[in-house]
Amino acid sequence: MSLPESALPAAPSAADAHDQEAWRAGFSAGLPTLFGIAAWGLVVGIAMVKAGLSIPQALGMTLLVFAGSAQLASLPLIATSAPVWVIFATALAVNLRFVIFSALLAPHFSHLPWRQRFALGYISGDISVALFLQRFPVEAPAPGKLSYLKGLMYPNWAAWQVGSIAGVFLGSVVPPQWGLGFAGTLAIVCIMVPLVINKAALCGVLVAGAVAVAAAGLPYKLGLLAAVVVGMLTAMAVEETLERFKGRP
């Protein structure tokens, strides 16, 4: 007995097939970074417990905040019972770089409903944004953009949460002599090096590193924000200068 045609599953449309392909492409692009992201999450999870947070508090922080640098910056303040406004201001200052990331992504996805943009903003990460802009450097519409971004962001978020939650439960048993903080830093360096793909990016990284060292003494980790802003402006200026020279006869 054959099923009526209306009962048969619909064949995937060309758009659906393209979205699935774009999602897989995004996942493949971000796959090499997932181990480093999980390692960094592990370090932050351990740090939260070592700073005195209970397991429920640490789990709530990693699920709600999802920002390793802001979490690490706020932990010493929490441990010393700093005022709540100081903790929030510090986390905000450290995470101001995401305003820049959002401004870079906004032209690509301004057509989406605000709730969807809000959700994408929550799960965005430094490396995911960098890889997306590497693949789609211009704002012109292109099929598969959103699916490619999701293929980057969803696994990135999952890898972070798995690592961080594991760190929360391991925090009470891992001895400090293991030096996992340095291991996490090395993992992030290994992730970032392949992203330095041209002279402009290299100049931006070098300038950002110099500014970060010079401004390390600024309060509330503002040196990190200054390094990000100056590094990005440097990379943009160098890229514009190189393009200008290329256009000359």
Rank of each mutant, 00 (worst) to 15 (best):
Val238Thr: 07
Leu218Phe: 12
Thr241Glu: 13
Val174Pro: 09
Asp126Ser: 14
Val65Leu: 13
Ala142Phe: 06
Leu133Glu: 08
Ala51Gln: 10
Ala15Gly: 06
Ser81Glu: 10
Ile191Pro: 00
Thr33Lys: 05
Phe27Asn: 00
Leu131Ile: 11
Pro176Asp: 12
Ala130Glu: 09
Leu149Phe: 15
Ser147Asn: 06
Val238Cys: 10
Leu186Tyr: 10
Ile100Ser: 13
Gly45Ile: 07
Leu224Pro: 00
Val84Thr: 13
Phe101Ala: 14
Val43Pro: 06
Pro194Trp: 04
Leu75Glu: 01
Leu63Pro: 02
Trp114Tyr: 02
Ala17Tyr: 01
Trp114Val: 10
Gly184Thr: 07
Phe182Cys: 01
Phe35Val: 15
Glu243Cys: 08
Ala93His: 02
Thr90Val: 03
Phe136Pro: 00
Ala89Pro: 04
Val84Trp: 13
Ala82Ile: 00
Ser102His: 09
Ser128Gln: 04
Phe66Asn: 12
Ala91Ile: 01
Arg117Glu: 03
Glu240Leu: 13
Ala130Cys: 08
Leu146Asn: 09
Arg117Tyr: 05
Ala91Tyr: 00
Ala17Asn: 12
Leu131Tyr: 00
Ser110Lys: 14
Ala25Pro: 06
His111Met: 08
Leu120Tyr: 09
Gly36Met: 12
Val228Met: 11
Pro113Ser: 05
Gly45Arg: 02
Leu77Met: 12
Cys190Tyr: 11
Tyr122Ser: 03
Ala29Met: 07
Ala93Arg: 03
Met61Phe: 06
Gly184Val: 04
Ser2Phe: 11
Arg135Asp: 03
Ser28Leu: 15
Met232Ser: 14
Met236Tyr: 12
Lys246Trp: 11
Leu242Gln: 15
Leu120Cys: 03
Val65Met: 13
Ala89Glu: 04
Met232Gly: 03
Leu72Phe: 14
Ala214Val: 04
Ser172Ile: 08
Leu146Ile: 09
Leu34Met: 13
Pro76Ser: 06
Ala159Trp: 03
Ala237Trp: 02
Leu149His: 08
Ala200Glu: 12
Ala7Gly: 04
Ala58Thr: 09
Gly151Phe: 01
Pro137Gly: 06
Ser2Arg: 12
Phe27Met: 12
Thr33His: 14
Phe101Glu: 10
Thr80Asp: 11
Ile100Gln: 11
Val230Arg: 08
Gly125Ser: 15
Leu42Pro: 02
Val196Lys: 02
Gly184Tyr: 02
Cys190Trp: 10
Gly184Lys: 01
Leu152Met: 09
Phe109Asn: 02
Leu152Pro: 04
Ile197Arg: 15
Ser124Gly: 15
Gly167Tyr: 01
Ser2Gln: 12
Glu240Asp: 07
Gly41Arg: 09
Val44Cys: 08
Leu206Gly: 00
Met61Arg: 02
